[in-house]
Design a protein around this nucleic acid. Sequence first.
DNA 1: GTGTGTGAACGACTTCACAGCC
DNA 2: GGCTGTGAAGTCGTTCACACAC
Lengths: 212, 212
Amino acid sequence: MTVHAKRIADSTVRRLSMYLRYLEDLDQEGQTTASSDALAQLSGTTPAQVRKDLSFFGSFGKRGLGYPVHELTTRLREILGLAQSWRVIIIGAGKIGSALAEYRGFRQRGFTVVGVYDNSPEKIGRAWGDATVRDIAALATDVRTLAVDIAVLAIPADDAQHVVDDLVAAGVRAILNFAPSQVHVPTHVAVKHVNMAMELEGLSFALTNRGD
Amino acid sequence: MTVHAKRIADSTVRRLSMYLRYLEDLDQEGQTTASSDALAQLSGTTPAQVRKDLSFFGSFGKRGLGYPVHELTTRLREILGLAQSWRVIIIGAGKIGSALAEYRGFRQRGFTVVGVYDNSPEKIGRAWGDATVRDIAALATDVRTLAVDIAVLAIPADDAQHVVDDLVAAGVRAILNFAPSQVHVPTHVAVKHVNMAMELEGLSFALTNRGD
DNA sequence: GTGTGTGAACGACTTCACAGCC
DNA sequence: GGCTGTGAAGTCGTTCACACAC
């Protein structure tokens, strides 16, 4: 299963994620089919792109009709690995972490927070949602006992690489990094960066060079 | 000034932003020059990429030596439009917005929060950092009087397009969208998306298809 | 010798365009 | 008639490799 001849591009996966979101909406609205054109308009891409993206994984559509909404929704969940539940820890008991944990879609999509960590004595031991903030020193052992799949880093940039090294050593294979710094990992570890500052600077650049 | 023959790629701008971050560090450490190789290693890219990125804007380096750290730092700030201060409003007085406003780099880079908005009666009127949460209904007029450059959207996906339309009508030309939905804007408006759910799903995909 | 600047080669993603099927 | 699936063509970004400057 999920044997791909080609490596799937990052951009494709991102779009699949977006298609899924809109398909869920359509499904709830009772739509039974959706054309590549409709999906494209919703997700801000082109019909050809939608068809190409989906074609990497099979032929889900019916010519002359479009794609079966409910079926494709299920299929996309499988493809994205959302048919199962992922065990997530959040490192850094600050605003970002709690914004994430609070986010409805987070649980809805099968991500479960199984631990929250911080290095500040003031925060350790405090209640945090359903969980209790634990000492970051416990990470190495907890990663194994909690069977952690994904670690979310919401800590200062200077600490990021150090913590990542510990996580990787402990066996974590997926990291979502909110710290505004590049982290280095072995090839078998997947890392995604969310860098608000960078996006903001992208806007700054756009505003500055708008007149060209 | 800033007359570019070519359109600068988004990926290039993102890397410039990263180079700047590391150059600032190097500058503070007292480093006077940095090679493309050094910058590449810090930012997780290649030396050729660094040189190419910078070459779009001029010849800053000295052959055999590298790039002058302080000078390049200043130059990159100018290029990215960070030499000036940008006036930012945050829409949605929740965790995400406050995480952003709290972030040190935010102010440091010249982004100033000039207003915070929400539609919840419970939140309107409350203090929020230095500001007071205002009614989202005041947006249209405030955008002009406050001379807003950038609007940050930290509201539910369903409300995003509606608010964006209002913002665009009021003259905002740069939007940072944290809502997990695509928003449609005229071409003269710059939009960046930060979608945590999408990144997380990218990791889910990677974990699911790791064995390939 | 060391490291930049850059055209040329390469590779990857996107768009086109049309055959095929409903 | 409408819409998918997909090779082919096109476009855009990255990597190479080397002349050139310090």
